[in-house]
Design a protein around this nucleic acid. Structure first.
Lengths: 345, 345
DNA sequence: TTGAAAGCGCTACCAT
DNA sequence: ATGGTAGCGCTTTCAA
């Protein structure tokens, strides 16, 4: 019936034939061994091993309406931010028997909607999203899917379903305030504001600037942030405002680039320049000088998302009472920030 | 027939009903619009949009024996090494209409076999692996699947199917030789030898040690490498052999950690210590001093893997003539390595 | 404990 | 150009 010869892969029928039992029994022997007599079970398992049988997940999912899959959509795989996050997802979901499927929207607007659609087409039993700015159509698809949807990383006013995150505006504000609080006045901000979180951080920075009656100095780049860009933006900031004595970098990669560029130019950190990053990536504590930063609970956000999903899928679909969880952030002062020389205490 | 009420998601039947056409016509209107009259096509598309229809990929794949999926199995998502690699895969496969599914084996032996099994259960149309040391059972499953299998990152003596990589023994040898060639004699190696590639690099280093009649100094750590570990291993090396004047770091993250730790201890790089990394990750060129390293063609490996797969799947399954491609590596000398003081040219 | 029958949602084939 | 029918490989009844 098929034009393209189905790859001659071993099917359950062949296993059953070889073990001389019915397909149902073979299926049971593989999935619920305790329901099958030892004799038949052994025969089935032996046949399956012998034939190197791999169950067709597609057929299984279609028949059972259970895919055992959870989709996770992230905007990037390449900046370290989602490392802990994905690790947490694997840590919780894998032992629970769920397969984690990662889709990447690459920070391209519109790709997330496509990724969500693709994910939904595979009928995952839950979906975890980074961020809260899904398109209207995506929200509709998500709602219609009738599965748990967790928006993470950021706090939403109107969550689709469950929401676990933190306020990036607050976090950005805290970072800038730390710098102003150390007596700095010319405090710059560099960012690759590709997502709403980065833009929220900029807003937090601007609010602090206003509070301290200072002038904003913002340098941005439209590509996904990396270390090299951090160096470039440092150069730009110094050119535009040579008196800058402190920089809030929108993430740790930018901060690392800024730090290196300072060293390259003989600008001492923290003596001449204070630098604070964002995220507390793995390398931040090991840098020299150790990088001050804002720690975000990335592992914890994904962990809680996963736990809640397990609870819902196992427990008859009931949502937890708290559908909106603010996990906050932590200001980490290390060696790369310092009270400005000559500033009164 | 189902106990668990199938999520009431919109099916093709409902779209067809709503558009007052048969299921087949609805299916065609969505997949091959040119086969359907404009009138019906418009009705179907309108109904699909209205109902926010998302095709069930599972059913489609089962019926058509085409999943439009390619599985990529990597040992880690968290060390930057697979960033370019995955980007290349997306760059080539996505426009070609393939969905990329990433599975992570987490450098845990045995997990790769499981990941391969999981991947195969989803009936991908091709599979891309990192490394060449698959288990015997995995090889059997892969062979049986009858789909293109590309082993990457490393060159194999007996590829399963297609193999694109480089010799890590040669690359490690080249790194160490560079250091010896600069007049260093106490040349150490630090590594997190979690995979066969890292172990091959160690072998390359040891071969160079022998050739230059030196003593091996190898410090290793069994966790996935990161920047902090690079610092720790530097400390260990200096403790064990204070006269060490050059280090080949098994990857750039370790190198970065070593660099920072040198700075912390007042060991000047490259004046007192030469450091060479491995992979040429994004930050290497921006570091201060810029990091010497071995560039590996990660983007290119995945790109060629993808192109070959497209060619095979499109072109009646014929394999290319060359099934084993060595893409080599490049020694990148930057500022972190230098001829040892007082060494004769 | 075992198995026969039906059907998951979709597409291939063949007919009209 | 359109639709009826069969069937992908599996699991879920339900009956024996």
């Amino acid at each position: 019936m098929q034009n393209k010869p189905r790859s001659s892969r071993v099917t359950l029928r062949e296993v059953a034939l070889s073990a001389d039992v019915s397909e149902v029994t073979a299926s049971r022997a593989l999935r619920n061994p305790e329901l099958v007599s030892e004799r038949l079970r052994d025969r089935v398992l032996a046949a399956a091993r012998e034939l190197a049988y791999v169950p067709n997940q597609l057929a299984s999912a279609l028949a059972s309406a259970r895919t055992g899959r959870v989709a996770i959509i992230v905007p990037s795989l390449t900046n370290g931010v989602f490392d802990d996050y994905l690790r947490a997802a694997y840590d919780i979901f894998t032992p629970a028997g769920f397969q984690v499927v990662i889709l990447n929207s690459n920070y391209v607007p519109g790709f997330e909607e496509r990724a969500i659609e693709t994910a939904l087409g595979q009928y995952p039993e839950a979906i975890v999203l980074a961020g809260i700015d899904q398109t209207a159509r995506a929200r509709r698809l998500l709602n219609q899917a009738g599965i748990p949807v967790v928006q993470t990383m950021e706090i939403a006013d109107d969550p689709i379903d469950i929401n676990i995150g933190l306020s990036h505006a607050e976090a950005g504000h805290a970072a800038a305030r730390l710098l102003f609080g150390l007596g700095h006045f010319r405090v710059a901000h560099m960012a690759s504001p590709l997502d709403s979180r980065a833009r929220e951080r900029v807003r937090g920075y601007l609010r602090a600037v206003q509070e301290f009656d200072a002038e904003p100095i913002v340098a941005t780049d439209d590509s996904p942030s990396n270390v090299a860009i951090g160096g470039d933006l440092l150069v730009e900031i110094l050119r535009r405002e040579p008196a800058t004595s402190a920089i809030f970098c929108g993430n740790d990669n930018l901060a690392l680039g800024a730090l290196f560029e300072c060293q390259r130019r003989g600008v001492r950190v923290p003596e001449d320049m204070s630098i604070i990053g964002f995220n507390d990536l793995e390398f931040a504590k090991s840098a020299f000088p150790a990088l001050s930063t804002i720690a975000t609970p990335r592992y914890e956000m994904a962990r809680q998302a996963a736990e809640i999903i397990l609870e819902i899928t196992r427990g008859s679909g009931k949502r937890p009472r708290k559908r909106r969880i603010d996990l906050g952030f932590e200001v980490i002062e290390r060696a790369s920030t310092r009270r400005i020389a000559g500033a009164s205490k």
